[in-house]
């Protein structure tokens, strides 16, 4: 498929005027940012699209029988199969096109999964699908635990976070392991496009979705999506946390095109003016899952959180070719 590779320009009004393809009336909790992420993603489509989704909050809340919130063709099978579904859909579209039975010139395929369906359960399917080079966009909305089944820890849960399977108490101070750098793992698969995004920087998010769709071959988009229920935070502040995660460099925004790392605007500004980098406590404060880190005996955990954040930020700057300033 040949498509003009001109840059997609849009105003806030253009996006607000676009009809929602992820409809109101879904049964998500109040203040659920993953639904904001899905609404925004569905506004960045460029044509006919098929969405496939792994089990997770967003699958459950959007398709409670007999209601559906999807205004596009949508498929759900099992927890581990988002990427496998996407490869099957893409292969079927290819076959239909070869036989001349496809009405459209091109159909985009988007696979959506949460952190459980990406980091842990769906990982082998994802790894296989991108290795086979199917042309699809994989969107990971990362709310940092299995929120759907009651806040169990996942590979995406940061160290120190209290979940129901890693409760903070006298035995352990929350999760003991670090968050898996999934986006870097996807870059290591040598796929054409990998990016991280945060819904507060919605323009950046929309551009990255569009880029991921336009690119030939697999694309991976990691979106941070705060969950007020699971993070034990104020529901009104969920979008604010998606901003603070970027400002504290806990979740820096970058994209890797053909393995070439590049910082996105919001994080680049921090790289150029390091005094703008905020301490991680700004992000952790107010989140109930990190409340125990602020007690005196857990001071070392708070310092460790800052240390791993700085360490990963330094490594990212080196990959992006930006010299790290103190």
């Amino acid at each position: 498929m040949e498509m003009a590779k001109q840059e997609w320009k849009f105003t806030t009004k253009d996006i607000a005027e676009k009809p929602d393809l992820f409809l109101s009336g879904h049964r998500a909790c109040a203040g659920c940012v993953p639904t904001t992420v899905l609404r925004l993603i569905m506004k960045a489509l460029r044509g006919p699209t098929i969405v496939t989704q792994a089990t997770g909050c967003m699958e459950v809340v959007s398709s409670i029988y007999p209601y559906t919130s999807w205004a596009v063709p949508w498929l759900h099978t099992a927890f581990e199969t988002a990427a496998a579904n996407a490869s099957g859909i893409e292969a079927a579209l290819k076959a239909l096109k070869r036989k001349g039975r496809l009405k459209h010139e091109h159909v985009d395929v988007i696979a959506i999964a949460g952190d459980g369906g990406t980091y842990d359960i769906g990982f082998q399917a994802l790894s296989g699908a991108v290795e086979r080079g199917h042309d699809f966009l994989f969107v990971l909305y990362d709310n940092e635990a299995y929120m759907n089944t009651g806040i169990q820890r996942s590979g995406g849960t940061p160290k120190g976070a209290a979940t129901t399977t890693s409760p903070a108490g006298t035995a352990i101070p929350g999760k003991l392991e670090y968050k898996k750098p999934i986006a870097d793992i996807m870059v290591a698969h040598e796929i054409p496009y990998v990016a991280t995004a945060s819904p507060y920087y919605w323009r950046d998010l929309l551009e990255k979705v569009r880029k991921g769709l336009e690119v030939e071959g697999p694309a991976f988009l990691h979106v941070l999506a705060p969950c007020p229920r699971g993070w034990r935070s104020d529901q009104a502040k969920s979008i604010e946390y998606s901003r603070l995660a970027v400002e504290t460099c806990v979740f820096p925004l970058w994209e890797a095109v053909n393995g070439q790392y590049q910082l996105s605007v919001a994080s680049k500004l921090i790289a150029l003016a390091p005094q703008k980098k905020r301490p991680v406590t700004d992000y952790l404060q107010g989140q109930g899952r990190f409340r125990h880190l602020f007690s005196p005996q857990n001071k070392h955990l708070l310092e460790d959180f800052q240390r791993i954040t700085d360490e990963r930020w330094r490594r990212l700057l080196a990959k992006c070719g930006v010299s790290a300033k103190p």
Binding site: L23, S24, G25, H26, S62, I64, P66, Y67, T68
Partner: peptide, 15 residues
């Protein structure tokens, strides 16, 4: 609809 296919739009479910 067979196999639990969702057939109604959620905009008819007021939250």
């Amino acid at each position: 609809a067979p196999a639990g296919v969702c057939s109604r739009t959620s905009t008819t479910f007021l939250t």
